[in-house]
Amino acid sequence: MTDFITIAIFNFPQEIVVLKSVLENEGIVHYFENETIVSVDPFASLAFGGIKLKVHPNDKEIVQTILDNLNNNLKIV
């Protein structure tokens, strides 16, 4: 997982719920850095730089397409 790159940053845990489900259904290996700490203490989002979506560089294009589709259809905050 050291090769993983940050492709998106979110401020609140509720912003990643649908995205997490889509990524899991597509079988894309990913993780959300700082998800747990921000879920426990929402004010920590600023201190830790938000919830960072990390993916393998090979999956960057497909994940970007998923993010674009969600932003166009769901208007993620």
Rank of each mutant, 00 (worst) to 15 (best):
V22K: 10
S45M: 15
E61T: 02
L23C: 08
N34L: 07
D41V: 13
I16C: 05
V18Q: 05
S39G: 07
I37Q: 02
K52C: 02
V18D: 07
N34V: 01
G49M: 00
K20I: 03
D41M: 10
P57M: 04
V40A: 12
V17N: 13
V17I: 15
L19V: 03
N58C: 03
N34S: 05
I37T: 04
E35L: 13
K52G: 04
I16K: 11
E61D: 01
V55Q: 00
G50K: 11
A44E: 09
V29A: 15
P57L: 10
S21I: 15
E35M: 06
L53Y: 02
F48N: 07
H56Q: 08
T36W: 01
E61K: 03
I28P: 15
K20Y: 02
V29F: 12
E15F: 03
N25R: 13
S39D: 02
G27A: 10
V17P: 06
E15M: 11
G27K: 10
A47Q: 15
A44W: 04
E33I: 02
K54L: 15
L23A: 01
F48G: 01
I62P: 08
G27Q: 14
K52D: 04
V40P: 02
A47G: 03
L53C: 04
L23W: 14
L23D: 06
E33N: 09
K54D: 13
K52P: 04
N25V: 13
H30S: 11
V40I: 09
L19E: 06
F32C: 05
T36F: 01
D59T: 05
V55F: 00
D41N: 09
E35N: 05
K60T: 09
G49D: 06
Y31F: 15
P57V: 12
N58I: 12
I28E: 08
T36C: 04
G49A: 05
V40D: 12
D59G: 08
G50E: 01
L53S: 06
V29N: 15
V22M: 11
D59H: 15
S39P: 00
N58T: 07
L19M: 15
V40L: 11
A47S: 12
V29M: 08
F43L: 13
F48P: 02
K52M: 07
S45T: 07
K20F: 09
L23F: 09
V38T: 07
G49S: 09
T36V: 12
E35F: 00
I51A: 03
T36A: 02
G50P: 04
S45R: 06
V55K: 08
D41W: 08
N34Y: 00
Y31E: 06
F32E: 04
F48L: 08
E35T: 01
A44K: 11
I37S: 00
F43I: 12
E24G: 10
E26Q: 06
I37W: 00
